[in-house]
Design a protein around this nucleic acid. Sequence first.
DNA 1: GACAGCCTTCCTACTGGAAGGTAGATAGAC
DNA 2: GTCTATCTACCTTCCAGTAGGAAGGCTGTC
Lengths: 196, 196
Amino acid sequence: MSNLSTTSDEILASARALIMTGGYNGFSYADIAAVVGIRKASIHHHFPSKTDLVRTLVMRYREDAEAGIAGLEQQVQDPLALLQTYAGHWAQCIEDASRPFCVCALLASELPALPPEVAAEVKAFFRFASAWLTSVMERGAQGGSLKLSSAPRVEAEAFMASVHGAMLSARAYGTPEVFATILAPTLQRLTPTAAR
Amino acid sequence: MSNLSTTSDEILASARALIMTGGYNGFSYADIAAVVGIRKASIHHHFPSKTDLVRTLVMRYREDAEAGIAGLEQQVQDPLALLQTYAGHWAQCIEDASRPFCVCALLASELPALPPEVAAEVKAFFRFASAWLTSVMERGAQGGSLKLSSAPRVEAEAFMASVHGAMLSARAYGTPEVFATILAPTLQRLTPTAAR
DNA sequence: GACAGCCTTCCTACTGGAAGGTAGATAGAC
DNA sequence: GTCTATCTACCTTCCAGTAGGAAGGCTGTC
């Protein structure tokens, strides 16, 4: 955790990029080797099997998300602002990078075909995201910062589903703006002052 | 369109089932051969390449959807009821079959890694679904059967995104009920008489 | 009615390449 | 001298796709 970019980090980074474009079965060790600039066999030194690689990738992805959200919680207190920042993060990812997609959302669609260890990590990510969003909804409902029309848990799941579905649509249409277009009314609906 | 189940129909059916579990790269001709009970080479007789197979599969999928919706429109007039039936269709699919997922939603997540011909068909499906949902929203807004808080087009996209995201969540959690749980408030929000 | 040709469907057998993974050697760092 | 990271070279398995032929059905024509 000292060096800026160790080889294994580079492997993980390029694997993530490749997964984001084509999913678990959409990339090979040869693809990574070509990007990183080492040989296939060298990747096996860092990650004995493809399952190992993707499992640690998703694990790391979740840990990063947890850390990022913990940091966000310290900067932003207002629940509505938290949701806006969350949506904004994805909107930015989708517009910035060339092939942006939540790794776990993409892997979730392939769940039944994934190695069990990887599938378990993906499920854990969903549980984490859902738990956090639920806590945000609860705080918003209590403090009056959010206007919920259902139970916090249900609102959280619906919000997450909107984000994932909007990602899919942005990819299908090839127009990143559609993500913000879909999320805007979703966020407005949760805003208390806005009249309906 | 006469015989109940020709071999090519069986090939398409098993390919669809396989795609629904693992996506485009998650199945092979050998997998289909094992299910249908013929040899790999015989599949190439019906569909020269994998691209041909999946392209016709998606094309057929869209045609079936178009026909199904045309039939639905004749039975049901009320826009809200149309949306409920649409959501109910997917809820039933998810609870009935073992591995249920909208083929096109799944393929959309792999879009950048798909053969261009297949990608074009998937995009066409999204455009069709979006256009139909938009028309439903427009009719609902005009007739007072739906209460929209945004433009019909935006509501349609948001609705579709919710459906796709809810599918993903149902798969991730392994609990089909979560689909209905997410869709219920979405539909209620569009219902005019229900107070908020 | 019988034979001839053709078309459809499926087969066996194969190809070249890519997949994930292994064995063993080399070179540098501590 | 051992440990780490990388290499070359190789293995096995699987992949999509091809070549060529066998079996059966349909449709002519005599």
